[in-house]
C-alpha cells in the first residue's frame, strides 16, 4: 500500500539546538500516529514541519494526493501548498482561538471551509454546518452564536467540526485536549475516536498525555531532544517500552 505521508530525515534547528533530528516514518491511509514526548522534545516543531507550516532545514515530506500523485510538499509553491492544506488537510490547534474566527458565528466558522472550496449555496452550507454541529455534540440551535459564548470544550469541538467539514484525508492535531478539564477531555476523546473510526481518517496527533495517545493512536513515536527514541504499535510501546526514557515516561504516568 502506498503511504499517505512519507517522511525522510526531516531536520530543523533553532540556532544551535536541533529541534528535529533526521526524523523519518511512513503514515498509511486510515492510520493514527501519536507523537509523544515532554515539552521541548520537538514534537510540535515536527508537526508544523509535516503540516507545511514550517520549512525544515533538510529532509523530505512526500504526500500522496487524492488523485494518486505523490508530491514533495516543500517542492510545491506556497500557493499550491496552501491549496493542498485547504482542500485535503485539517489542522486542530491546541487553543481553539488559534483555529477559529472568534468574531464569526459557529455556522460561519464551520461553513467557511466549504465556501473556501467553492460552495455558494447558503442553505446547503447552513445545513451542512448544522449537521456537523450535531456530530460534534453542539446543539444545532447554537449555530448563530459566536464561539466566545461557548465553553472551552465546545470551542474545541467546534474547531474539530470546522476541520472535518470538507472531508479532509489527513488531520494534524496539536494537543487537542490540552487546555480542558479531565471530564471534558474524556468526552472529547470519545468523540474524536468515533469520528476517526467513522470517517476512516488519517491523523497525526501530538500530545504529552500518554492516556490520550493510548486512546487514539494506532502507532506511537516517542521523541526526546529532537530525536525519535522509540517507535512502534501503541500498546507495544506503552506496555513494553524498550527505551529507558520511554520507560520513565510510562512509569511516571502510572505513578500519578
Amino acid at each position: 500500500m502506498t503511504p499517505l505521508l512519507s517522511v525522510d530525515a526531516v531536520t530543523f534547528r533553532y540556532g544551535k539546538t536541533l529541534a528535529c533530528d533526521r526524523i523519518g516514518f511512513d503514515l498509511h491511509p486510515g492510520e493514527v500516529l501519536g507523537i509523544v514526548g515532554e515539552s521541548g522534545s520537538g514534537k510540535t516543531t515536527l508537526l508544523n514541519c509535516l503540516a507545511g507550516r514550517l520549512q525544515p532545514d533538510s529532509g523530505t515530506i512526500r504526500y500522496t494526493r487524492a488523485n494518486g500523485e505523490a508530491v514533495d510538499i516543500y517542492r510545491l509553491g506556497e500557493a499550491e501548498r496552501r491549496f493542498l492544506a485547504r482542500t485535503e488537510w485539517g489542522f486542530v490547534h491546541q487553543t481553539p482561538r488559534d483555529g477559529l474566527r472568534m468574531g464569526v458565528t459557529a455556522g460561519g466558522n464551520v461553513g467557511e471551509p466549504l465556501m473556501a472550496v467553492g460552495n455558494r449555496h447558503y442553505e446547503n452550507i447552513r445545513h451542512e454546518a448544522a449537521s456537523w454541529l450535531t456530530k460534534v455534540e453542539i446543539d444545532a440551535d447554537r449555530i448563530d452564536d459566536r464561539p466566545t459564548t461557548f465553553s472551552g470544550g465546545m470551542q474545541q469541538r467546534l474547531q474539530i467540526a470546522r476541520n472535518l467539514v470538507t472531508g479532509p484525508r489527513l488531520v494534524f492535531m496539536d494537543e487537542p485536549t490540552g487546555g480542558l478539564d479531565v471530564s471534558v477531555q474524556a468526552r472529547l476523546l470519545d468523540l474524536v475516536r468515533g469520528l476517526v473510526r467513522d470517517l476512516n481518517l488519517s491523523a497525526i496527533l501530538v500530545t504529552h498525555d500518554l492516556a490520550v495517545a493510548r486512546l487514539l493512536a494506532d502507532r506511537l513515536m516517542v521523541m526526546r531532544r529532537g530525536r525519535v527514541v522509540e517507535h512502534g504499535l501503541t500498546d507495544q510501546v506503552l506496555d513494553d517500552p524498550h527505551d529507558a526514557y520511554t520507560q520513565l515516561l510510562v512509569s511516571s504516568v502510572l505513578q500519578t
Binding site: 485547504r86 464569526v104 461553513g111 467557511e112 465556501m115 452550507i125 447552513r126 449555530i143
Partner: peptide
C-alpha cells in the same frame, strides 16, 4: 495571491444568518 477568498463569503453568510 493564492485567491483565498473563502473568508469574504463568510461575511456575506454572517449577514444573511443575522
Amino acid at each position: 495571491a493564492y485567491a483565498e477568498y473563502g473568508a469574504m463569503h463568510v461575511q456575506l453568510y454572517e449577514s444573511i444568518a443575522r
